[in-house]
Amino acid sequence: MIIRDNGQEYDSEYIEAAIAKGDDRDSIQRDILNMFSRFAYYRYHQIRSLLTTRKCKKLSIEQVRERLDIDKIQAYLALSEEEINYFINFVEKNIKIIS
């Protein structure tokens, strides 16, 4: 899947391959993975914010999954259902969120 961000394109297969390499990543893979991680968290934060009415109380990933309303998110963000689920899964697996 190709994910677009204002002219920047990320290939999900390339991202997954970079994650799988672990410490053997080269500098380009590391840079792309870092940029995508920031972008993925930004999108996750937008999704999470749309699903709660109390912005000061952050939802956990499990709560985001329970409240997930694809139609509501797509009304505000130009994302496909596949992209929404990919961002949530990516953040859950690869980004440490301190509650």
Results as ranks from 00 to 15, higher is better:
Ser27Val: 12
Asp69Gln: 10
Ile19Glu: 14
Glu82Phe: 12
Asn34Gly: 13
Ile95Tyr: 00
Phe36Lys: 03
Tyr76Ile: 01
Arg54Asn: 13
Arg48Glu: 09
Arg4Asn: 13
Leu50Glu: 02
Arg48Leu: 07
Ala18Asn: 12
Leu33Asn: 09
Ile84Met: 10
Ile32Lys: 15
Glu16Gly: 07
Arg54Asp: 12
Asp23Thr: 12
Ser80His: 14
Lys21Glu: 06
His45Trp: 06
Lys58Ala: 13
Ser27Glu: 12
Ala75Glu: 07
Ala18Tyr: 12
Glu13Lys: 15
Glu83Lys: 08
Arg30Val: 00
Ile88Val: 08
Glu82Ser: 14
Lys55Phe: 05
Ser80Pro: 14
Ile84Glu: 11
Ala20Phe: 02
Ile73Arg: 04
Asn34Gln: 14
Gln63Ser: 10
Gly7Asp: 02
Tyr41Glu: 11
Ser60Met: 06
Lys21Ile: 01
Asp26Ala: 04
Lys58Phe: 07
Met35Thr: 02
Phe87Gln: 10
Ile47Asn: 06
Lys93His: 08
Asn6Pro: 01
Phe87Val: 09
Gln74Thr: 08
Arg38Asn: 12
Ser37Thr: 15
Arg48Ala: 09
Tyr41Pro: 06
Tyr42Gln: 14
Lys93Tyr: 05
Cys56Phe: 04
Asn89Pro: 03
Ala40Lys: 05
Ile70Asn: 09
Gln74Pro: 08
Tyr14Lys: 13
Asp5Val: 06
Lys58Cys: 06
Leu59Lys: 09
Ser37Tyr: 11
Glu83Thr: 09
Asn6Phe: 06
Asn34Lys: 14
Ala17Ser: 15
His45Phe: 08
Ala20Val: 03
Asp24Val: 09
Ile95Arg: 08
Ile61Asn: 13
Gln63Asn: 10
Tyr14Pro: 02
Asn34Met: 15
Met35Phe: 03
Leu50Gln: 04
Asp5Ser: 12
Tyr44Lys: 00
Asn89Thr: 11
Lys72Tyr: 07
Ile88Gly: 06
Gln74Cys: 07
Arg38Val: 09
Glu82Ile: 13
Glu66Pro: 00
